[in-house]
Simulated scan of single mutants.
Amino acid sequence: MESWERTRRRWQHAFFGSWLVLTSAGPLTEVGQVLPVALVAGLAAWYAVWFVLRTPPAGEVPLPYVAGGALLCLGLFAIDRSFLVVCLCVLVPYCMDAVRIGLVAVLSCAGGWLWHSYHHGGSISWTEIAITVLIAVSAATSVGYFSSVARQSAERKELIDQLQAAQEARAAAERQAGVAAERQRLARDIHDSLTQGFASVVMLLEAAQERSPDDRHLAQALCTARENLVESRRVVRALRPGELDDGGLPEALRRLSGRLSDETGIDAHAVITGPLRPLDAQVQAELLRVAQEAVANARRHAGAGRVTLTLSYMEDLVVLDVHDDGDGFDPGRAAAGHGLLIMSERMAQLGGTLLVESAAGEGTTVVASLPVAAR
């Protein structure tokens, strides 16, 4: 994107330079004085100071540049009215970005030309008026064209930036999901093999010790087996999502709402409805991530005073509902929001759906649902 901006600036400099030469070459030849040449050179240098040696932020209008350029143009206009068109060069940098400024420049120059003709000749012919109007319309059309091209380019740049950011966010989410899935697989494998094996060994050694309570080797083997059983369980717990260790998803949502209230003062609470049922570890982890993202959005952007997390166990569905009473937004214009995209992808990967309901001033509701029967 930096190369695109540099290219745009180069075209702007070329546009200014060519327009300055085109509009001042004729009048300088006719006048034939040193002062006009110095003023035109000063105008070029003044432009270079503000737009070549430094780069103003996009959309900024440096008032010192406009004021200095206007003074130089007034000096040229006082020498000869033919230099009036040169005054457009002061606002040429904005003809590509701000159509209003360009149109003001065109109308000012057209009005100045007609006023100068009337002041020196005492009258204005209809031919002069018609020619001036045609030139002004042509110049205004050029300004509008340049402005539309610049606006379209800026929109494309913004879309490309958003696409790159979304791709990076999606890649990060996929990496995170892959790591989480691998940790879950390892936890299951360790639990189903090593942990169960150690538990069986402990039971067999306990039975053997009951028959030979004085056997020192059996006691040592039993102690070692118990230690390894405890260690394998510790590894399994470390591989599972920490938030789901105690009480599963319902307790994790209660802790999440409690932290939100403690840290921000927002009235947040979690509600669990329906008969509890065991859920796949990945389902719990993904629903928790959706809840965390929705709560983070309410905390950062919504200005909410109340947040409610509702987990509903239905006959064939488990539904997570996160509602806030904040400012709300237009979901149709939220395509740039990476969080919504990631939450939707999380649900789609598990065969579920994500619904976002919101309107300005009416709060926001995020509903994530998963088919339990399908899992």
Rank of each mutant, 00 (worst) to 15 (best):
M1A: 13
S3Y: 11
S3G: 11
W4G: 12
E5A: 14
W11K: 06
W11E: 09
H13L: 08
S18E: 09
L20Y: 03
L20S: 08
V21K: 01
V21H: 02
A25F: 05
A25Y: 08
P27V: 00
V31Y: 02
G32A: 10
A38G: 09
L39M: 01
W50V: 10
W50S: 15
P56R: 10
P62G: 02
L63Y: 09
Y65W: 00
G75P: 04
F77G: 12
S82D: 12
L84K: 07
C87W: 03
C87R: 03
L88Y: 08
C89H: 07
M96D: 10
A98V: 14
V99I: 11
V99C: 09
G102M: 07
L103F: 07
A105E: 01
V106C: 12
S108R: 05
W113K: 04
W115F: 15
H119S: 15
H120M: 09
I124R: 04
W126Q: 12
I129K: 03
A130Q: 09
A139I: 05
R151V: 06
R156T: 15
K157Q: 14
K157H: 11
L159D: 12
L159Y: 09
L163H: 11
Q167N: 14
E168V: 15
R170L: 15
E174C: 10
E182S: 13
R183D: 00
R188K: 08
D189V: 14
D189G: 04
I190H: 01
H191R: 11
D192V: 01
T195Q: 03
Q196W: 00
Q196I: 01
G197A: 03
A199F: 01
V201S: 07
L204Q: 14
E210C: 07
R211K: 10
A219C: 08
A225D: 00
E227Q: 12
N228E: 11
N228R: 09
S232K: 00
R233G: 10
V235R: 07
V235I: 14
V235Q: 05
V236S: 04
V236M: 05
A238V: 05
P241A: 02
G242D: 11
G247C: 05
L249H: 06
A252P: 14
R255A: 09
L256Y: 02
L256E: 15
D267G: 07
D267Q: 11
A268I: 02
V271Y: 03
V271R: 08
I272Y: 04
T273A: 14
G274Q: 02
G274E: 03
L276W: 08
L276P: 15
P278A: 07
L287Q: 04
L288N: 01
V290N: 03
V295A: 05
A298P: 02
H301R: 08
G305C: 01
T308R: 13
T308Q: 11
T310A: 03
S312A: 13
S312N: 08
S312L: 10
M314W: 07
V318Y: 01
G326M: 00
G328W: 00
G328T: 01
F329S: 08
H338N: 15
L340N: 12
I342D: 01
I342G: 00
M343S: 03
M343I: 00
E345A: 08
R346C: 02
A348H: 04
L350M: 06
T365S: 12
T365Y: 01
S369K: 05
P371C: 00
V372Q: 06
V372K: 01
A373N: 04
A374S: 06
